[in-house]
Amino acid sequence: MIVNYGYTDGSGDYYIVIDTDKCDGCGKCVDACPQNVLELAEDDYGDIVVRVRDEVKSKVGYVCLGFNPGCSKNEVNCRSVCEHDVISHTW
């Protein structure tokens, strides 16, 4: 399942896109995130996968630093630690 967490507003698209079929629930991305955006939880089909925390969903564009403008400059980020390319960002 591909899950789009986020929204479109006047300034652009702010979605964190998670492909849960590829996720093995290792949780490395949860630790790598400097903003505490992610968590592990059971989905409706009984698999433990990564998701965006409920409190963050409606303010993704403000809490997450974004990949291109923000975390891509960090040595470690949610995308670099993932072996299966589960997470992507639209900004």
Partner: peptide, 12 residues
């Protein structure tokens, strides 16, 4: 009937 992709607007 299994979800493969979804997006939601619950902000506005």
């Amino acid at each position: 009937g299994k979800v493969t992709n979804f997006a939601m607007n619950d902000k506005c």
